[in-house]
Amino acid sequence: MSNILAVDDDASILTYIEQTLNNEHTVVTVETVADAEKEIQKQSFDLLIADLVIPDKNGIDMIMELKKLKPDMHILAISGGGGITGRFDYLPIAKLVGAEITLKKPFTIQELRSSVKQLLSDN
């Protein structure tokens, strides 16, 4: 049983992640980076599932900042790819700044579950 924080501006995706993982883990979902920062101050998380395109902040910056606050936290980055602003893919960049696994949306529940399992079993 691990603590997972999921950040995505799309509520239905958060629900989908929560529903997929909440049998085995405690999942906290937030829609903004600001809320994510607040949650991280409150309690410690083993895994951050981060969308890379969030309205209030660039996902890459968010990962870097949260990683600074909690260096031990695992990170799984998710994205629809091909950012809105640029024409490049954020996922490889997320890997560069510390995301251990990246998943391109849409992903299956199997892909999500196995990725989470892989990251948390490292502990």
């Binding site: 799309d10 995706i13 989908y16 994205s79 629809g80 024409r87 849409p106």
Partner: peptide
Amino acid sequence: GILAGGIAHDFNNILASILGFTDLSIE
């Protein structure tokens, strides 16, 4: 191109929900 990139990104998000919840339902 930029428009298509944006649409693709949003569409993937929507698809993520559709496929995700379909998967969950099947499960």
